[in-house]
Amino acid sequence: MDCNKIYPRTGDTQTVYLKSVVNRPTIEVGDYTIYNDFANDPLDFEKNNVLYHYPINHDRLIIGKFCSIACGAKFVFNCANHTLKSLSTYTFPLFFEEWDLQKSDVATAWDNKGDIIIGNDVWIGYDAIIMAGVKIGDGAIIGTRAVVTKDVEPYSIVGGVPAKEIRKRFAPEVIEKIKSLQWWNWPEEKIQKSLTAIQSGDIDSLERVV
């Protein structure tokens, strides 16, 4: 097992370990998180999928371990916003030279909603859009072409425009057990030993793993 290589599958250049292809210091990706792209080169994830992520704003994209991100998923950052505090939605501060404004006030052109934070073991579906300031909990599933504008609770399935909760993946007591175990933080050897329990959904066996 080597989460530092680019391609996890022999002969498959459409799927990458994402942490090995991102370079921006404002993007953090956990071990074994994958991105698949059959339309574009997955090596271009930062250019094609992380949008309006300009250094001036210092906002971050943080993605946990063991996430699965489908082709076309987009993360839309604060610089895409136009401030709603103004009487106009026109971004005058961006064109400070034209309007004789202070360059230092450029960031007032948009409303800053904060970082995008994705938990562990999250599945983000095809063409889904995650908006600035959203936090997605561990184990959540984001449906195909969903537009996520609000936080998503752990182990929730959401879909639609704007995305709304469809249901929880498991019973509340099971969710609490998984959150407590945090198997994604275990050593690789322990995860390997636990795969049968993880894949079969046997939470009781997972709790007994030592």
Rank of each mutant, 00 (worst) to 15 (best):
F38Y: 13
I63S: 06
D111P: 05
I129S: 13
G133F: 11
V76K: 03
W123A: 06
P55D: 13
F95C: 07
F96H: 15
V122W: 04
G125V: 08
N36T: 15
K135D: 05
V122C: 08
D121F: 02
A107Y: 06
S86L: 04
I34V: 13
D138K: 05
I62G: 01
D37E: 07
N81C: 05
N78L: 01
D138S: 12
D115K: 07
Y35L: 00
N36V: 13
I141V: 15
V106D: 08
I130V: 15
H53T: 04
Q102F: 07
G64I: 03
D138P: 13
L94K: 11
N36F: 07
R145W: 04
I116S: 04
I69C: 00
S156T: 14
A140I: 07
N57V: 12
V122Q: 08
D59G: 09
T89W: 02
I142F: 01
D37Y: 00
Y90D: 02
G72F: 00
W110Y: 15
E98V: 10
R167K: 13
S156Y: 01
Y54R: 11
G119V: 02
Q102I: 04
Y155N: 05
I118T: 09
C79W: 10
Y52F: 15
D59I: 12
P93W: 00
Y155C: 06
I116N: 04
L84F: 08
F38N: 11
I136N: 12
E165H: 10
S104F: 00
Y126C: 09
I34C: 14
S88R: 02
V158Q: 05
H58L: 07
I166K: 10
P42G: 06
A140H: 04
F66S: 10
Y126N: 13
I129C: 10
I118G: 04
G64W: 00
C71K: 09
V161A: 03
N36S: 15
V147K: 08
P55F: 02
D59H: 12
A146G: 08
K150D: 14
L43T: 14
Y35T: 04
L87Q: 11
V152M: 03
I116Q: 05
N78R: 06
G119E: 01
L87W: 12
L61D: 03
D111S: 09
K74F: 03
N40F: 13
